[in-house]
Amino acid sequence: MQRIQEGRSGGGGVLDKNKQPVLLQHGVLVDGITWVVNTPEQALPFILADSGFDVWIANTRGTRFSRSHLTLNATQPEYWNWSWDELVEYDLPATFDFLSRETGQKIHYVGHSMGTLIALASFSEGKLVDKLKSAALLSPVAYLSHMTTAIGVLAAKAFVGEMTTLMGVAEFNPKGEAVAKFLHSLCKNPGVDCYDLMSSFTGKNCCLNVSTVDLFLKNEPQSTSTKNMVHLAQTARKGLVSKYDYGREELNMEHYGQRKPPIYNLSNIPRDLPLFLSYGGRDALSDVGDVELLLDSLKFHDGEDLTTLFLKDYAHADFIMGVNAKEMVYNALIAFFRRH
């Protein structure tokens, strides 16, 4: 994790131990740097720090800052034997435990894309909620069956069965040769514009400037596990938020004691847990139809504890890199945190 303890006004060299901690969790195929490619006036972590929060930026396992391991290294297939289930079961709780010990306080959470999926799954299982003040979910991803990104739909169809390695590669490295070949094969399909891969995945973002996108592309994308991509593809194909499907009943029995993988029941999320959801009309990954399914599973949430903000011109990347995201999203998000 990286930490920003002080805003630009500073505190005369004296750190305020009572500042409210905020944890930022990025999505898939990127790392924590995506939060800070904009200027300090436009990037959420800096805006939060300037607003008096104690900011922590997480980096998912397998990305550049989180590749260490006690016994394995990233060249071994075993290192990559995980999906977002493990992020729900181990990584997010460990992060929360660490922050709780370090700060002695409950935590505000901001997730984007897969960072919202792992949070929602955790909350539905009763994890984290005792250490949480509130959660803001940007481009929330839970259900994926409506996604309109052509390349995403094709990838979801390609990742079938137990294909936990791609051409024998357990690491899904977008800059590696195996993944480049895989993407090239998808690019031959009509409707996929591989000259603008970012828009092909995210939808047509309204509000990114060229220098931000250039900086983003210098630093991203990052690796994840092929198994994680398979799990996300299963989520898209099945229209369910469930644990990883091993593809054969006997393997599921071995792992779960049942023939089908257990479902994360999102209606189990505590009704009094303050949630802020912001989603966009042009988002090809977090499609409005899927967000509506998510909101339906939260329909019994206490009214004052569920805030939604819809932006018709926003697509997936606008929420973390949009030049006007402060005015459009972050001011409302900070006001929500202050209320809770």
Rank of each mutant, 00 (worst) to 15 (best):
D31S: 06
A136T: 07
R101G: 10
T148E: 09
T148A: 13
T148M: 07
L266Q: 05
A136K: 04
G111L: 04
S83C: 11
S113T: 11
F319K: 04
Y264K: 10
K175I: 03
T308P: 08
N18A: 14
F216G: 01
V22W: 06
M167C: 03
M321A: 14
L293R: 08
V88G: 07
S122P: 14
E249T: 13
L166P: 04
S242L: 03
Q258R: 14
P174W: 00
Q42V: 05
P274D: 09
K131P: 00
V169A: 06
K326Y: 07
M321W: 13
D305M: 03
K218M: 11
G52P: 00
L166N: 02
E171F: 00
T212L: 04
E171D: 04
A43D: 08
K131E: 07
L120E: 13
L217K: 05
I107A: 09
R64M: 06
N219Q: 13
M198W: 07
T116W: 05
V241N: 04
D85W: 00
G176C: 00
Y330H: 00
L120H: 13
T39G: 13
T95I: 08
V88H: 08
F46Y: 15
L277I: 09
T149G: 15
G13T: 06
T63F: 13
I33T: 15
T34P: 01
E220V: 11
D50R: 12
P190K: 12
S100W: 01
P270A: 08
S200K: 05
P140N: 12
K227E: 02
D193T: 14
D85S: 02
V129P: 09
E89Y: 00
G13E: 07
N59Q: 07
G303M: 09
A317F: 13
A74K: 09
A284I: 08
D302W: 05
A317S: 14
N324V: 03
L24A: 07
D302A: 11
N38R: 12
S242T: 10
I151D: 02
K260S: 15
S68T: 10
E41A: 12
K17W: 10
G10F: 11
H108L: 01
G176M: 00
W80E: 05
V179S: 05
T202W: 04
W56Y: 13
S278D: 05
Y109I: 07
D290F: 01
A332R: 10
G11N: 14
D31G: 00
E89T: 07
